[in-house]
Simulated scan of single mutants.
Amino acid sequence: MPSLSLSTLTHSLSHPLSTTMPPAAGAIALHSSLCTISSDKPSSPLRSPSIHVSPKPKSLLQNHPLYTPTHTKLSLEFKEKILCLEVMGVDAGKALSQNPDLRTATMESIHSIISFLLSKGLQEKDLPRIFGMCPKILTSDIKTDLNPVFDFILSELKVPENSFRRVVNKCPRLLTSSVKDQLRPCLVYLRRLGFKDLGALAYQDSVLLVSNVENTLIPKLKFLETLGLSKDEVRSMVLRCPALLTFSIENNFQPKYEFFAGEMGRKLEELKEFPQYFAFSLENRIKPRHMEVVQSGIALALPVMLKSTDEEFRELVKQGGG
């Protein structure tokens, strides 16, 4: 296997190393790699008792293609860090690019983060996806960043500890969000809007909690009002279809409404009754099905036209709309 120049990664921070070493299939490899890297610092009290830290073998990297004697300016720990990220299944280049603080993070601190997350019920197999999506977690402060989030999930979302894993896997960004500045204000706003089911917010719509109230949620509600909907009607629509609060105004609401009101010539009342319209692909679902309906000369209610399977839709067209 040809050697990959480590400077390519460290200078550009964009070249994935997976072509040199495939991601580990599970966390046995994760911990075997991390836990064979020792530190001069004392072991963290947060470290799980089941995790064994053994002396660092000199051959950890020296026989690996990533390790080249020409890159003497890079510390061994930095090289170990890159290799361990890749062993975890995390694209090291992407992670370092998105979170430059990883350059100076110690293996000890990264190990403590992993041990802390495992103590909260996450499983080793969850970590590659979580760190891949949010590499900032790897340099978070356990006391000031992570613990408050888990306290919020427990005390304010009323999620039992044995369900932490489900919530975090649904929305890893929760772990990079400030409780004071982001999560709590958003929860308060959503509850005022009418979201009463904390379970639904925690397990299904948790992405709403990491949205910005002033810059993301409110502008979407106001745009829907410009279509001729009242505040109560908009509120009713988002409560029935919370995903509306995740859609882009420019890339979703505007083009889909223009097609709805223009080409389709449908009435606003139908959107009130079926806000899920905005969840369907304009190019792959809405347009082609509308064209078939027009060409067939039949009339189909909006939900029937869009929710039916391809087979059901063809049968409806064949039968003239039923």
Results as ranks from 00 to 15, higher is better:
Ser12Gly: 08
Ser12Glu: 10
Ser14His: 05
Thr19Ser: 15
Thr20Glu: 14
Met21Cys: 05
Met21Lys: 06
Met21Ile: 04
Pro23Phe: 06
Pro23Glu: 07
Ala24Asp: 11
Ala25Glu: 11
Gly26Lys: 00
Gly26Arg: 02
Ala27Val: 00
Ala27Glu: 06
Ile28Glu: 14
Ala29Tyr: 02
Leu30Lys: 03
Leu30Phe: 02
His31Gln: 12
His31Phe: 15
Ser33Ala: 15
Ser33Asn: 13
Leu34Tyr: 12
Thr36Gly: 05
Thr36Ile: 10
Ile37Met: 05
Ser39Pro: 04
Ser39Gln: 06
Ser39Ala: 05
Lys41Trp: 09
Lys41Cys: 04
Pro42Leu: 11
Ser44Leu: 07
Pro45Gly: 02
Pro45Lys: 03
Arg47Met: 07
Arg47Trp: 07
Ser48Asp: 13
Pro49Leu: 02
His52Asn: 03
Val53Tyr: 12
Ser54Val: 12
Pro55Glu: 11
Lys56Phe: 09
Lys56Asn: 09
Leu60Lys: 07
Gln62Cys: 03
His64Val: 10
His64Glu: 11
Tyr67Gln: 04
Thr68Met: 12
Thr68Arg: 12
Pro69Ala: 15
Pro69Met: 08
Thr70Tyr: 05
Thr70Met: 08
His71Gln: 14
His71Met: 08
His71Leu: 10
Lys73Asn: 11
Lys73Ile: 03
Lys73Gln: 12
Leu74Phe: 00
Leu74Lys: 06
Ser75Thr: 10
Ser75Glu: 03
Leu76Val: 00
Glu77Gln: 11
Phe78Gln: 07
Phe78Arg: 13
Lys79Arg: 13
Lys79Thr: 02
Glu80Val: 00
Lys81Thr: 12
Lys81Tyr: 07
Lys81Met: 14
Ile82Arg: 05
Ile82Cys: 15
Leu83Gly: 00
Cys84Met: 06
Glu86Gln: 15
Val87Met: 11
Val87Gly: 02
Gly89Ile: 01
Val90Phe: 03
Asp91Gln: 01
Ala92Phe: 01
Lys94Gln: 15
Ala95Cys: 01
Ala95Leu: 02
Ala95Arg: 02
Ser97Tyr: 03
Ser97Asn: 14
Ser97Leu: 14
Asn99Trp: 00
Asn99Thr: 15
Leu102Gln: 07
Thr104Gln: 11
Ala105Thr: 12
Met107Glu: 06
Glu108Tyr: 03
